[in-house]
Design a protein around this nucleic acid. Sequence first.
DNA 1: ATATATATGTTGACTATCGACATGTGAGAT
DNA 2: ATCTCACATGTCGATAGTCAACATATATAT
Lengths: 110, 110
Amino acid sequence: MKKSNAELLHGTLELLILRLIRSKKRHGYEIAKQIQAFSKDTLVVGQGSLYPALHRLEHKGLIQSSWGKSETGRRVKFYEPTESGAAQLKEEVSYWEEFSGIINLIIREG
Amino acid sequence: MKKSNAELLHGTLELLILRLIRSKKRHGYEIAKQIQAFSKDTLVVGQGSLYPALHRLEHKGLIQSSWGKSETGRRVKFYEPTESGAAQLKEEVSYWEEFSGIINLIIREG
DNA sequence: ATATATATGTTGACTATCGACATGTGAGAT
DNA sequence: ATCTCACATGTCGATAGTCAACATATATAT
């Protein structure tokens, strides 16, 4: 696992963000920690990827933010999906399934 | 499927190439057609991605090429994996499985 | 003759990730 | 008191891989 996740993360980060904030409002730092936790430290999203991705998604109107307080009492920016963000998530999941299905097929039968 | 496959293809193209030439020697054009066929036209790899990827892999010593004739009688460059290319394929498949497992987990339980 | 599919290759633009840097706060240790 | 660490948001320049478009050439079918 020496290889950086740059290449594969490419294209799935927005899906992951949308999915993680669908369950509940989360702030950026929390999203990064969640990804790291789910992956048992295999996938580590740097701030230089995460925050631009959040701003990108917000700019596209797929997520919206609001300032609030974290469990630890700190000032944080919570994100939640907009309606079009929820729709986008469905599309991205469906495309991911199709895409990963193709990769698996070629791995099996290529 | 309006979305271009740029983002997701990123990081899996070398895996696909290595896998497809593991079964038998193939030339570039054939590899592209194979990916397109397996994916039923969902994944279309342009020449601007494919040929640089082949040269990259050859430069890294993961594949080797030899000129020959295609079934249609044309002069083509056949590629096959080197020993380290075969090893690299195993690693990439294993990493792909881990990676896609994480994405699927987050999609299910995020 | 001409168009199409086969076949290899290059180029410049784009874009998302990366590592490093910058800034600030709250909690616990010394 | 001070210091370090985890928390938390953000920017910046470099890197790298894909893309569309272009360039070239041959064999086959119309």
